[in-house]
């Protein structure tokens, strides 16, 4: 057999195995009489309900004669608010409405709960990533510092965080630190993830710095640079190049770990998935969709990092 044919044969084997797995899933669901209802999923990604206009306070509605605008007059007080440009009116003239009631809807598409959850997950991950990077860099520098206080503090931080489960840390951040500092669930979630990931980043940074040959620091110091200058101009740029792949892996973990913040009152992608399951009773479809959406985030991140690596390799 020619080598190229052989290669194609193995690509074929790959496809056959994938198909077999897919068929296995189909058989398994057929066994439990599962009713696939994929058509229920899209509405949770993109809503067609239209954007809602909600009442900011209790009051009486005054609809204009042409029906194209309304005025809401405050019940207790003299405040009033005018609304126009909606497509569907949900209240009548003289209606008494309460705060947060829906007055009208604009037509058009809006993000469904899963898309909103994806956005929250992305927000939490991106913010935690930035803080984790700063925290990890500081702690990593502490790990390799001469100063015993810095070294021991950094080591203690890393040991405590790596020795306890993230879920427990999230509870501590939410119930203890969050309460003491009156943090929102979002802030507590970001803090927990940043502190957790920062410990791993610190170890990656330490390993990266230690992987730069000793002679580099000696050469920099022998030229009269102080420790900070040598770190900034000589050691860290070289270390960063070495740690980019493990750092990317850690940040992909961060995105996946962020699903644990759904235990707090925080509607991230995973929590949104749970909510959609309870209203559709289609757990298989929803969780497959949620998994695909996580894959979209992590895949996007690895693609970005690969491009960055290529760019840095080109810069010698």
């Amino acid at each position: 057999m020619r080598p190229s044919m052989k290669r194609w044969m193995w690509h074929g084997v790959y496809a056959v195995v994938l198909l077999a797995l897919g068929f296995g899933v189909y058989l398994a669901t057929a066994r439990v009489d599962y009713d696939w209802r994929w058509e229920r999923i899209p509405q949770y990604l993109v809503g067609t309900e239209g954007e809602e206009i909600r009442a900011p306070f209790d009051g009486f509605v005054d609809v204009a004669d042409d029906g194209k605008s309304i005025v809401l007059n405050e019940l207790k007080g003299a405040g009033s608010e005018r609304y126009a440009g909606f497509d569907r009116l949900l209240v009548g003239d003289g209606d008494l409405v309460f705060q947060n009631d829906v007055l009208a809807r604009k037509s058009g598409l809006q993000a469904g709960p899963l898309a909103v959850g994806l956005w929250v997950t992305l927000e939490i991950s991106a913010l935690s990533l930035v803080f984790a990077l700063v925290l990890g860099l500081v702690a990593g520098l502490g790990r390799v510092a001469q100063n015993p206080a810095a070294r021991h503090l950094a080591a203690t931080y890393v040991e405590i965080i790596r020795g306890t489960p993230l879920l427990v840390q999230i509870f501590i951040f939410y119930f203890f630190i969050g309460t003491v500092l009156s943090l929102s669930a979002f802030a507590a979630g970001v803090a927990a993830l940043a502190v957790f990931t920062g410990a791993y980043v610190a170890e990656i940074v330490r390993a990266g710095i230690e992987a730069v040959p000793r002679g580099q620091m000696e050469a920099a110091r022998s030229l009269g640079m102080n420790y900070a200058q040598a770190m900034r101009h000589v050691i860290l740029p070289q270390a960063f190049k070495k740690i980019l792949p493990p750092l990317a892996g850690q940040f992909i973990n961060l995105i996946k770990d962020s699903s644990l913040v759904s235990v707090m009152a925080l509607t991230d992608l995973t929590k949104a998935g749970r909510e959609v399951v309870s209203s559709t009773f289609s757990p298989f479809e929803v969780w497959f969709t949620v998994a695909a959406m996580y894959l979209l985030l992590t895949g996007g991140l690895s693609w970005l990092v690969r491009r960055l690596e290529k760019g840095m390799a080109a810069g010698a």
Partner: peptide
């Protein structure tokens, strides 16, 4: 000046 040169490779 060092035996291994120790130039900054980046």
């Amino acid at each position: 000046v060092f035996q291994q040169f120790n130039l900054f490779p980046h």
